[in-house]
Design a protein around this nucleic acid. Structure first.
Lengths: 225, 225
DNA sequence: GGGGGCCGACCGACCGGTCGGTCTCCCGGT
DNA sequence: ACCGGGAGACCGACCGGTCGGTCGGCCCCC
């Protein structure tokens, strides 16, 4: 195992390289980022990078799989929080899913992983197993808990999952695609979309066209705002 | 103006180059595709490519903006079809949106455009204005028609739009990311997801938690299957 | 004095793009 | 009927530059 670096004055070179590389990868893509650019951004020589990572691929894998657990931690905490009623827990979970996939570095890696998935299949596998699936499992757990308590009605699970995560992932991709638009934030007002998205999903969970059956323990189930 | 090529025995070199390039770009990404590889795939010399396209960027723009209209034509036809009732029209529109964004070449371009959006902003702009927006407009038109006829209730429009297109776009991205998985089709059974997705959306359009108000002319509004 | 972190110089391969030149076909003049 | 030549499609060779990666050695802290 690698020891955690020399750590002179609280400064880990490996950490710095991963951070700078992540920034560059997100900005220019995998093939569009050269090791020389990265070395310059780190204030060192290219050869020195190869003391910390054997290849560019290995460096990318380190970037892409860095911080899975921290990114998802918030969602896990929300599921475990006993002070929330089911509706509010779901709202906060949606909130967290937006942050995880749109704000966090590893969430924004998705388009990059698509770019390299043919040449580095392992990173796609890890991303799926340790990032996407964990989110799905946590979210399904929150829904199952609500169903068990009678707050929610069971939706068609596959379609519903995709209606939870799909809009978030596509928003993340669109933000990458349209970063050069000066008005992207007004074009896609993320906060408002997120709120409406959560309320629409809740409406489905509350049993849509069959009317309200078994809605005990609904809590303050009305619309926010 | 460029005349439409010499067209000897019904074979357009420009067309061939665009088709081969699109295939390669989708397989290996923009930076990952070299003009030499493309020349070999076309059975010609690299220099000859530059008789048809001035730069690699111009070639990519030609690929990315090729076939917008054909891809969207189906959706436009569905909106204009007078023989459909509103529910069935919506179902077929969702179907078409899946085909447009997942099967057609220009729909699958989205991750690529994200890759090059910084270096070729024009292509992101064109993709947004002439592909994404046209789909949104058509889809909103179908919903508005249904509302005007009393078949649908107006949903929160922004959130609803994202619940229509988000899952499709994310499915397209996931298919790119996980092409190396041998079992992707069972992992994400597209047909079943699409059907459940459409039915859940229809449930929202039929006025979910407020109960059914103003549902005249609903037609056969029940669930398919 | 020994070892890890770092460096300048360098490698072969490949990149996007250009060059001069060849081949073929068409077309107008005679 | 023939010919000259212009134009477009195509090609082999080559350009400067950059890529990912390597090597031998220096420097500094233990």
């Amino acid at each position: 195992m690698l020891q955690p670096d020399h750590e002179l004055d609280g400064f880990s070179r490996r950490r710095q390289i991963i951070d700078e590389a992540t920034t560059l990868f997100l900005q220019r893509g995998y093939a569009g980022t050269s090791m020389s650019q990265l070395a310059k951004a780190c204030g060192m020589q290219k050869a020195s990078l190869y003391h910390h990572f054997p290849t560019k691929e290995a460096l990318f894998v380190a970037c892409a799989t860095d911080g899975f657990d921290e990114a998802i931690a918030e969602l896990a905490a929300i599921r475990a929080d006993p002070t929330l009623d089911d509706d509010e827990r779901f709202r906060r979970a949606i909130h967290a899913v937006y942050r995880i996939n749109i704000d966090s570095a590893c969430g924004r890696m998705a388009p990059l992983i698509a770019e390299v998935s043919r040449t580095i299949p392992a990173v796609a596998r890890a991303f799926h197993d340790e990032f996407i699936m964990h989110q799905h499992v946590l979210m399904n757990g929150i829904i199952d808990d609500g169903i068990a308590r009678g707050s929610f009605q069971a939706p068609e699970r596959l379609g519903f999952e995709h209606m939870i995560f799909g809009p978030v992932v596509s928003l993340s991709l669109e933000r990458e695609m349209f970063t050069t638009f000066d008005k992207f934030d007004t074009l896609r007002p993320i906060e408002r979309i997120r709120t409406e998205h959560a309320e629409l999903l809740l409406r489905l969970l509350h049993g849509a066209d069959g009317g309200a059956r078994g809605t005990a323990g609904r809590g303050r189930a009305g619309r926010a705002r």
